[in-house]
Amino acid sequence: MHIPDGFLDAKTVVATGALATGGLGFALRQVGARLPRRRVPLMGLAAAFVFAAQMLNFPVAGGTSGHLVGGVLTAVLLGPSAAVVVLSAVLIVQCFLFADGGVLALGANIFNMAIVNSVAGYGIYRAVRRLFGGLRGLVLASAFAAWCATVLAAVCCTGQLASSGTVAWVVAFPAMANVHMLIGLGEALITALVIAGVARARPELVEEGAPPRVGERYVEFAGFGVLVALGLALLVAPHASSLPDGLEKVAAALGFEHKAAQPLVAAPFGDYHLPGVKSAVWATAWAGAIGTVVVFALAWLLARSLVPKSRDDAAPPRR
């Protein structure tokens, strides 16, 4: 899902850059205000951990393999703001050392994989956790959230590619969403297994963090919520509906639209030679909706099979 350079146009680069800078800055402030001094080294070690974990491939159907993104995993273990910082660090190093993910696409990659993946994923995790306690709830919530977060990040990525005029939404959305609904299963399974493993060996490490005061958590949720919503409204909503292109409007209002490179595809919704592309979008949306229910059920089964009833009480308390 690492977008290389050359796939995004100027306005998308600027918009995602601003969103990522805002999100990372906000996360750094949140972490800086709350992180105890003794946990500062853990941020770097956690980033190295995510990096190392991402190097392990898992098999996906059909001979392809995927690898962990780790947003939900990190958010559950360290909290959402710390996860944003940690994953951003991973993406920055991947970009500058491995040329994995572009420099100008860094904003987009941070927005998708560090912010949307961990923050939105964490929001879903907390919502499920509110309803299901115990170790089983932990497994269920983290598996389900990891799957949703993977698909969401892929949809954001598609929105950015479509906004740049590189790939038309009607082509990219079904492809990206369907592939990541599959990859998401791997992410969900690994995330849940790892969190269950850590919770068993060292229960105090899961969500240990510094439990924030009630008000602070709302600030965190509100801040990231606004940011993610803004990103979705600008980059994804225009394609997914008949809304006017928000990003184009903003670019025009700020007066740098004329500086943006010519879109490669003049009419992204022009006539398509492939039959049934429009219906593919709807089919994918339906698959997503049904997939969500199915994955929730699968995650529930996973939690039941992984955690025997007797072990469930020994779980960290739900908060």
Binding site: F49, G197, R202
Partner: peptide, 25 residues
């Protein structure tokens, strides 16, 4: 087995990383 062992390695790695972070501190 492959999935479980992969997950085992990752969770062990996380635990070791937190312990190392303490020693670095």
């Amino acid at each position: 087995v492959a999935w479980r062992s992969l997950a085992g390695i990752v969770s062990q790695l996380f635990i070791r990383s937190t312990e190392r972070a303490e020693r670095i501190y």
